[in-house]
Design a protein around this nucleic acid. Structure first.
Lengths: 227, 227
DNA sequence: AGCTGTGAAAAGCTTCACAGCG
DNA sequence: CGCTGTGAAGCTTTTCACAGCT
């Protein structure tokens, strides 16, 4: 009933990747008590072109008002809904080193939509410690944490050497979405969704563009600038 | 002379974004003393298709041997060169909270190509502390750290609220490449290259796909699964 | 015989520009 | 009149499939 004429479930990947950015920009507008916004303004704060923004939003449905713009609250709801953020997703963080601790106490989860339900580490020495009011548990706790039917997101924040083993454990326990912060490409079976965040990859991409900037054919500068 | 027939300087963005992954896979092969590798094998460890890998590499030049494969050492060198990693790039990290400290001591920089030259924080209380043998300096140190002619990469690891102000300071000091970890879109003038890494964006993209998986029209499950 | 390098086809994404609605 | 929503055009990226080299 009311079959949710939310159009075809065909949102392009490129669009999905930008929706979180729109959501954040809308959040700022909400904080400033702005009621309505034009595609031009919203696009600017999200750092994209207005044509792209309108095309992206058109994949979710027709939620703007011609001649006026978009209602901030309603658009926020529609994007949240499209992304599946109408309820909280449980998140398990594995690896409580510097990075894991930073992630556990990072504001990123505070964003509506996620809730850290467990922190795991292999090291018996730190099991029992608390980070942000959540106790660190041993890896063995994993199987009892994941309810097969219920979706759950696993975050890998271990050293590169353990990343693949941890990924295998997560998959075996039934986790079907993994976010990997380890400096290592990991293999997951088909059906498991995996994304990777990697500092050195990002730096290397920046280095490439920085190098292009110098542009010219002057390779000597490269050697001289080393230091 | 030997004008480096390195083909046209036209490496597609999509290719540049994958080169670091190939470099990492090659690093693992080197560690295992593997001398030569086929496109099929290398593509598998980097998580892409072999056709894509070959097309990508073809933009750098013709460094494979037909019927055999690629020489691991030589290909590593050629990709490093294409990315501009033949010398170290200086990196300045701003914001020494949990995240900044994690980044400062993260193995990512150990990867050939980058060297953390300074850690900055606004908080007088922690200025002078050391992280990984490098002292934390006040923001004012910025201007003397950046040599106008010399390229430098700035990493923003501050709370969202300070991110834009820090970006402005970096740009004013002459930094032309910025990697932003703060949960906030920042605006930079044209000519400055900016990349963003964001936990909640990644989680939201995973949430979208996880939601699609359940697929069906069963929205009731969504409510029930909340907890 | 085997694997790379690459044109050509297909798919996907972005930009344009304007019809259509409020 | 102004701004959204969208076909159509243009551009980029991926995939295919095989010629060409060792």
């Amino acid at each position: 009933m009311s079959v949710d004429q939310a159009a075809k479930r065909e949102i392009p990947d490129a669009t999905v990747a930008r929706l979180p950015g729109y959501l954040r920009a809308l959040g700022q507008l909400t904080a400033q008590d702005v009621q309505s916004v034009s595609s031009e303004e919203l696009a600017h704060s999200a750092g994209v072109s207005s044509a792209k923004l309108r095309k992206d939003l058109s994949h979710l449905g027709s939620y703007g008002v011609r001649g006026v713009g978009y209602d901030v609250a309603h658009l926020t709801y529609q994007i949240s809904r499209a992304l599946g953020l109408t309820h909280d997703w449980p998140v398990i963080i594995v690896g409580m080193g510097n990075l894991g601790r930073a992630l556990a106490s990072y504001g990123g989860f505070a964003t509506k939509g996620f809730k850290v339900v467990a922190l795991l580490d292999r090291d018996e020495g730190i099991v029992g410690d608390s980070v942000d009011e959540l106790a660190i548990q041993p890896m063995e706790a994993l199987t009892s944490l994941v309810v097969p039917g219920e979706a759950c997101i696993g975050v890998i924040a271990t050293p590169a050497a353990s990343a693949q083993a941890v990924a295998d454990l997560l998959v075996a326990a039934g986790v079907s979405s993994i976010l990997n912060f380890a400096a290592m490409a990991i293999q997951v079976p088909e059906g498991v969704h995996m994304r990777k965040v990697d500092l050195s990859t990002e730096l290397q991409i920046l280095a490439f563009h920085e190098q292009q900037r110098v542009g010219g054919s002057d390779e000597l500068l490269d050697e001289a600038a080393g230091r």
